[in-house]
Design a protein around this nucleic acid. Structure first.
Lengths: 211, 211
DNA sequence: GTCTATAGACAGATAGAC
DNA sequence: GTCTATCTGTCTATAGAC
């Protein structure tokens, strides 16, 4: 492994474990067994190294989701279920979500995180649409918004898990969300006459839109 | 306002805006117009000041939720709706959730965050139970897990909003979650004969439990 | 109680030899 | 390309005068 690769690998693990500010050149150098010279030879400084590392992480995460939950890996509802119930080390935190919450995060890293979340939403949106087509999910649901909501539940699971210092809240909320989806099968095919309206009249998109 | 109060107020705002590590004594001192002496007279150091500030924030947030969404403030479903649709400056971030994600956060601050989330869950769990009693929400749902899931959606909304650099994802996911709840009215009262089972057989609690 | 001055450690970056 | 030595700034904390 080249020194450059070693530096990026060290940066990736440190970003995950300790965040951007605590990813000091000193520690990166120790882990990668490279000297200062190498770091500043390949990169303009700490930020560029971190940006390259973050970009790699985003690509890895995106690709993995696409492979495991993309179209062709099962029914829509199965893919949603598979995503929700993936094994997660909640206390370790999400490599993407944690960065998003860092107030000091430079824009060069944030944009990678944003792109990864976009790709993830795209995969889940497709799964929701398939589930609706397959009759496993209520057709009135906004696929794009529901996809983001499923992502939000997982991200929130990380937050609650870290707050409590236990993994349990993650399984708790992903399990509940999964149960919710199971309850949301559309009305049965038999000719149903004028069932009660589904919730009060409201736009299916978010009701408020700020700025 | 005493110097001590001024220090705590400065710490509270800095924790929110910039996080724990960036809350430097230097900046706290500038904002509070106190000198180094005052800080180290009232507190053992940065960490103790931050812990006191965080505890105050947690208390404020908890109390506000209890006042606006607690029992006696409307029907269960209205209280859940009110919580989900509260005005939030998503880009500014959640004072509690952001701290939870900080890898460098000392235990003395984390525990305050944990307590606040516990109180919040308690308020929402009560609202879910009331909604179920009032026939506005499906009785099969686990009230405690659903309460945590609603919290998770909001926390995830913050993450997605910050990742994208826009407020919009917050309204998007809270709106979608709200719509989901509206679809989850229990089966109508009319004697329904043998409707299809609600989702596949599964425990209502989280399906997996780690550790 | 509150202040200023200063210590000691480490951050991020540069210089220059090999 | 890779190294070591060094620079400058900031961090958290302490000292000691008023």
């Amino acid at each position: 492994m080249s020194k450059r690769e070693a530096l990026v690998e060290a940066a990736k693990s440190l970003l995950w474990e300790r965040g951007f500010h605590a990813m000091s050149p000193r520690e990166v150098l120790q882990r990668s067994r490279a000297g200062q010279g190498s770091l500043y030879h390949f990169f303009s400084g700490k930020e560029e190294l971190a940006a390259v590392a973050m970009s790699a992480v985003a690509e890895e995460v995106s690709r993995r989701i696409e492979v495991t939950c993309g179209p062709g890996t099962g029914s829509g509802i199965d893919r949603l279920e598979r995503f929700l119930m993936s094994d997660r080390d909640a206390l370790r935190g999400c490599r993407l979500g944690r960065m998003a919450q860092d107030p000091d995060l430079p824009e060069s890293l944030r944009s990678s995180v944003a792109t990864a979340f976009e790709r993830l939403r795209s995969v889940l949106e497709r799964a929701v649409q398939d589930a609706q087509r397959e009759g496993a999910l209520h057709p009135d649901l906004d696929a794009s918004a529901l996809a983001d909501t499923i992502i939000a539940v997982v991200q929130g699971g990380y937050v609650l898990a870290r707050a409590r210092g236990e993994n349990e809240p993650m399984a708790r909320v992903t399990g509940a969300m999964s149960a919710l989806l199971m309850l949301l099968k559309p009305p049965q095919n038999e000719p149903v006459v004028a069932r009660a309206p589904l919730g009060r009249p409201r736009s299916r998109k978010s009701a408020k839109r700020r700025t």
